[in-house]
Design a binder for these strands. Structure first.
Lengths: 163, 163
DNA sequence: TTCGATGCAAATAGTTTGCATTCTA
DNA sequence: TAGAATGCAAACTATTTGCATCGAA
């Protein structure tokens, strides 16, 4: 599954809008599929398939993990979902919101810091000019040390991730 | 295993030199451990643990995969080995050679293009100035589209990886 | 002769697939 | 009511761990 063909993002403002997109593409709107969308709308940032399958108490019912994966794949083909690999750990899925954000992931404390994608524009063009290589920080983001962890070389094992 | 403490690289020119380093650290030199080193010296670039365990016909005998992982971990703690995550797929291990190289990985054709780490210096400093974030392209390299794949948006499923 | 390292097997995490059943369109 | 999607179980990939045995120092 080398996302060779990255479907253009389809930003929608609520579950109903997403559902309309699905119908427009001739896809069925099952409750399992709707639940995945609900979980993504409730989520504050990129979440794992397992977190989606677990549901959100009182807000989103739990669902079958395999179906979640299948639905995420379908939704991503449609453009309603994107996924990122934030260093180690499971892939994380999110809605492509209006303000596109990319991540800087700290490999020490696991914090993922979201920056507007525009702010990486000249990093991207610097790399493209020099190597003829067009980096995409949206699927495999930049990993390194956040400001805090760069300073203190010794300790700090706390994870203050805010994905 | 969040490589919080990245051991300084120890570049050696042959298996015997590596073995000497092990002994100096009070580590034992078993045949399994020596075989991992031999495989890494024979390898042309970063290889997976499984490739090491499979051995090289006529040159390096196959070995137990679990032991390979344990030895790679030990060798990495000593600084004799580094590992990278080249997009999807297994982690890949290599000796830290004198001329440090980092990778640009094409997510379309899987080619991994090695560039001298010095050539990424100002990409690194641009990111550090702007975000106070110190990127490390050595563990999770930059992923995107290589020159060839960036040009032809449609086809091309061939993998011309040269890691 | 000790304790680090091995090799096998089993466990684990993340993800995918097969298949009979369910339910949307 | 056709066939898309589900849900469960099982397979799969990458990696780790338990444990009895072996062997380097």
């Amino acid at each position: 599954m080398t996302l060779a063909h990255v479907t253009p993002a389809v930003a929608v403002e609520d579950v109903d809008a997403a559902v309309a997109v699905l119908r427009a593409r001739g896809l069925r709107v099952s409750s399992a599929r709707r639940v995945v969308l609900e979980a993504l709308f409730v989520a504050e940032g990129p979440v794992s398939a397992e977190e989606i399958a677990d549901g959100v108490p009182g807000r989103v019912p739990p669902s079958d993990l395999a179906s979640v994966y299948r639905n995420l794949e379908t939704l991503e083909e449609v453009g309603l979902v994107r996924h990122v690999h934030l260093g180690h750990g499971p892939g994380r899925y999110a809605l492509p919101l209006a303000d596109d954000r990319e991540y800087l992931v700290c490999e020490h404390c696991d914090a993922a810091c979201a920056v507007p994608e525009a702010e990486l524009a000249d990093v991207r063009s610097l790399i493209q000019e020099r190597f003829g290589f067009r980096p995409s920080f949206s699927h495999f983001p930049i990993v390194g040390l956040c400001a805090a962890c760069a300073l203190q070389p010794g300790g700090e094992e706390e994870s203050h991730a805010h994905v």
